[in-house]
Design a protein around this nucleic acid. Sequence first.
DNA 1: CTGTTAGCGCTTTCAC
DNA 2: GTGAAAGCGCTAACAG
Lengths: 321, 321
Amino acid sequence: MRQIADRLGVSRATVSNALYHTGRLSPDLAERIRATAAELGYVPSAAAVSLRTGRSALVGLVLPDFAMPLFPVFAQAFERAAKRRGMALLIADAMGDASSQAGEMRHLVARGVDSLIVIPARGAPIDVSTVQVPVIVVDSAANPLNTASCDHRDGGRQVARHLAELGHRRVLILSGTATSNVADERVAGMAEIFADLGVATRIVAVPAYLEDVEAVVAALDLDGATALACAYDAQAVAAITALTQRGIDVPGAVSVTGFDDTVWGRIVRPSLTTVRQDLAAIAEHALAVAAGETDGAQLFPVTLVPRASTSRPPSPTKGTP
Amino acid sequence: MRQIADRLGVSRATVSNALYHTGRLSPDLAERIRATAAELGYVPSAAAVSLRTGRSALVGLVLPDFAMPLFPVFAQAFERAAKRRGMALLIADAMGDASSQAGEMRHLVARGVDSLIVIPARGAPIDVSTVQVPVIVVDSAANPLNTASCDHRDGGRQVARHLAELGHRRVLILSGTATSNVADERVAGMAEIFADLGVATRIVAVPAYLEDVEAVVAALDLDGATALACAYDAQAVAAITALTQRGIDVPGAVSVTGFDDTVWGRIVRPSLTTVRQDLAAIAEHALAVAAGETDGAQLFPVTLVPRASTSRPPSPTKGTP
DNA sequence: CTGTTAGCGCTTTCAC
DNA sequence: GTGAAAGCGCTAACAG
C-alpha cells in the first residue's frame, strides 16, 4: 500500500479511500490508484483490516459430524452463500460430541469469527450465553434459538401420508437415541399423521452409525410392521441392508423411508424414498443473518422424494388395530 | 490484555511474556498473570497477533470436490492434524474446476493463510509460481510437486494381482476422462501387473459423476471382460448399479473394484473391493510440513480391502490372448 | 527480571 | 479533494 502511495505521490489514506470509499476523491485519481494497485498485485492484509475494523468477514461453522453424508453438502451450501458475500468460512467438526461442540465454538470465536453458524449435534444443546458473537442456530422450529431450518415436522407429515396412502397400517418409526430437536420434530410429524389416520406405530430408538443401526435392525422384532420410517437417511440405508440380509424384501415385504435426500439414498438398492431439504435456501438465510442483512428465524419447506424403497404393503392389510 | 496489566500493575509486555515465553520472568508473577488472564476470560486477538508476527496459524486447504465421498473424510483428517498443532483450516472447494482451484488458492492467500495444502482437481495442475506461501501438494508420486500422498501405483498393482489371482484373464480398466496423476498412476500400476501376468486389458475413460458413469457402463461393450477395475470408488459404485440393472450379476458374472475405501463402497451391494489410503498419515505429514517441522515428499503405503464385489470369473477361462 | 518503545498495515476522523 | 495523525492489540528489541 505504501508502494502504491509513494509511486503516485499520494498518501496512504488516499489509497485506502480510492480502493473502497469511492466518490470521496476525484474519479481519475481513484482510477489511477486502482490501476497501480492491480499492477502491483496489491492484496490488502486481512489481519490489518480485521484489527482496524474489528471485523474479519470470517464466519465460523460448527457441524455435528462430517462423516454423516448430509453435512459436507450442507457445508458446500454455506460456502457458496458466504463467498457470494465476500465472507469466508472457518469450518469445525464437533464429531458428534457435545463438549467438543462447545470447544469448537470457543475456538472459532478466539480465531476472530464475526459470527457463528451452529448445527447442534444430537444431544448437544447450544449455550449462547457465553459466546460474544452472534450465533445462528440451524436446527428446527422446536428450538427457540433456531434461526434457519427446514420444516422437519412437515417432512414427517409428508412421509406419514405417503406411507398411509400406500396402505400401510402398522409402521415402525426409527428415531435417534440422543435427544435431537430435528429427530424429535420429524418423529412428531409422523406420529401426528399416523395417529390421525389410525395407523399403528411403535417408536424404536437406534444409534447414529451405520454399523450400529444394522446390528439393531438385524435383531429387531418387526411385530407385523410393513414399513420402517427413519429419522435419517443413514438409518434407512442401514435398515435396508440389514433387512435384505435377513431375507426380507424391500419394499416387497417392508417399505423403508429416510430423511435428507443424501447421496447414500441414491446408491443403496432399492433407492431410498426420502425428504429433501432446501440446503441452499437455508444457507442463504443463515448467511444473510450473519452479514446483518436481515434477522429473524425462517422456516423452509421440504419435499418428499418418492423412490423405490416404498410400495404397497404385501398382503391384504391385516392387523389393523 | 490492558485490563490484566493494569490490574496487576505490570506492563502489557510483561503479560505477553508471561503468557507465552515462560521462563523470562519470575514464576510466581507469571502464575498470577495467568490466573488473572483466565479469570478475566482473556482471549488474545488473532488479528493483532497475526498482524504483529506475520503468521496466522491458518492453513488453507483446497479440495477438488466436496461432493466426492473421499474429500470430506480427508478434510476431517487434515482438521485433526491441524488442531493438534494449534492451527486452523480454511477449507475451499474447487468444485472440480481448474480455474476455480487457482481462484481459491489466491483467495486463501489473501485471507492470510501461512501455507496452502492443495489436492489437485482432475485436469487442474497446480501453478505454484504465482503463490507467495508454501504450497503442499497432495497428489501422487508422478507429480514432482507432490509433498504427501499414498502410493497409488502400488494400489493399482495390488488390485491387479488380486484380480489375476482370482483367475481373471480379461479386464476392463475404468479411468477418468480428465488427466489426473492419481488416476494415471493407479491405472499404470494395474496395467503393469496385468501385462506381466498376461491379462488382457482395455482402458475406458469415463466421466466423474455417478449418473454419467452409470450411463456409460449401461451402454458399455464388455467384450468378454470378467472384471471392471475402476480408478475411483464412485465409478465402481456406479458401475455396480449399471451392471446390476443390465441383469449382469456382480460378482458372479463380472467382478468390480474401486479405489479409496469410501463409505459408498460399504453401502453398495455387493460391498466393494477397494484400496484404502492412510488419510491420517498423509494429513499428519502435510501438516508437519505446513508447520515447518519437516520437509520433503513422503509416500505412504496402501492396503487392499477385499470385499464382496470380487470373486472368481464365471466359467472355465476362455479368451486368453 | 521487568518496563519502555516502536511499530505490524490498515482505516478514519479531522484539518487543510 | 487530499493529507496528517492516531490507534486497533499485540510482540520483540532493548534498556533499565
